[in-house]
Nucleic acid binder design. Sequence first.
DNA 1: ATGACGTGCGATGCACGA
Length: 284
Amino acid sequence: MKIATFNINGINTRLGALLEWLRREQPEVVCLQELKAPEEAFPVEAIAGAGYGAIWHGQKSWNGVAILARDADPVEIGRGLPGDPDDTQSRYIEAAAHGVIVICLYLPNGNPQPGPKFDYKLAWMDRLLVRARHWIDSGQPVVMAGDYNVVPTDEDIYNPKSWRKDALLQPESRERYQQLLDQGWLDALRHVFGEERVYTFWDYFRQHWERDAGLRIDHLLLNAELAPRLRAAGVDRWVRGEPKPSDHAPTWIELGPAKRVARKAAPPKTPARQTTTRRARSAT
DNA sequence: ATGACGTGCGATGCACGA
């Protein structure tokens, strides 16, 4: 089962590209960010025609997030990140889909820094830490996917020098991302790629795509219930190479099947010897 | 130090992104 996150940068502008990517890659679950469309402008028919059910949280001009599920309807759990009733930006939505709790987020950019936008980013991350704590101990398999607008380390950018003052690289942003990992979330891309460089975003300037001058800012974090199922991860770079692309590429994980839950009627009367075997789990 | 590019809004340049 493939779960992907993709900052589409305008869902109606790039609807053709989205449908082509869905057709070719067939992910079971998709998290989209930067719809840049109000609620009523979401192209629900076209996406249904591609075989996907969807829930979305739109907003005029900016932001906007959605969760798609192949041959299924995502069951919405909540929309809007709790913790600030005055926050009107559409950046967060939760659903159950294909047996997994899926959190789709579009973390604030935070530039320019310092300033009120950076303050908003850090406050948003503090609220996310609270919500993430709720989910990590839920006992459910959870993936928290999206555009985090955080370059976790200097190994996640082609060259940090010209980005030192950018909100994406600030210690305050990185500390909070690290606090998520410290809760027990697994950074799936980094886990699978190890020391290898991997980027998910290339800005439109200075031929950064052509030079592979990228950043890794789209992340999929897995809790301990889900992490053992991690089999592979990747970036669909071909999407970034198409005409008129988003500046992000779809970023995904591949999961193995869910472990079957035994529902036998009764345990054996005589306790057998402990024969439970534990397979090595690469993702724990 | 700035801008390079791109999108939405809506009609012109501006806000915003990263």
